[in-house]
């Protein structure tokens, strides 16, 4: 476990955290690897983790009966995956498929939630960082929603 601490401390997501906070987070962390074609999680399952991608690629997918699996976004080295562990009812909204051999640091959401409930400063620091990740995803989603490259781009509702 001690080997993960420097990896976690170095990650840009953790930048600015104090050593004791890093240590607390490391206490909830574990290494994991996913072979290409395996799922990190599936829609509807309990969301009790989030992931720091060390190496590999993950496709976030939605499944519809007519289209089959549709890739919404891909996640690469260094990216953060998953915030459903933060938000009730703590269930994944999408599937996450490793499209190649993927190594991650998995962080136990239940463990972190418990620590954040008692240590609000840590909770605030983590939430700030997740807000950043979520804002970037939201921006990206909005841009995708505009369907800018379509033959008839979606127009706003102005007169």
């Amino acid at each position: 476990m001690q080997t993960l601490e420097p990896l976690i401390a170095e990650h840009p997501f953790m930048k600015g955290l104090r050593p004791e906070q890093i240590a607390m987070i490391t206490g909830c962390a574990s290494n994991a690897r996913f072979e290409a074609g395996t799922y990190l999680f599936r829609e509807g399952q309990e969301a009790d983790q989030f992931y720091i991608l060390r190496k590999g690629r993950i496709a976030i997918e939605a499944f519809s009966p007519a289209q089959g699996p549709v890739t919404i976004q891909t996640i690469d080295d260094g990216d953060i995956l998953g915030w459903s562990w933060l938000v009730p009812p703590y269930r994944w909204r999408f599937d996450a498929l490793a499209t190649e051999l993927t190594r991650v640091i998995a962080l136990d959401g239940r463990c972190l939630r418990t620590k954040c409930e008692t240590d609000h400063e840590l909770g605030y620091e983590l939430l700030k960082r997740f807000a950043d990740v979520m804002a970037e995803r939201l921006d990206a989603t909005r841009m995708q929603l505009l369907d800018l490259f379509a033959e008839k781009p979606v127009r706003g509702g102005r007169r």
Partner: peptide, 15 residues
């Protein structure tokens, strides 16, 4: 912006 499984590359916006 969107892809099926056949696409091995990135999905997401260019930014």
């Amino acid at each position: 912006d969107r892809a099926t499984r056949d696409w091995r590359g990135n999905v997401g916006v260019v930014t």
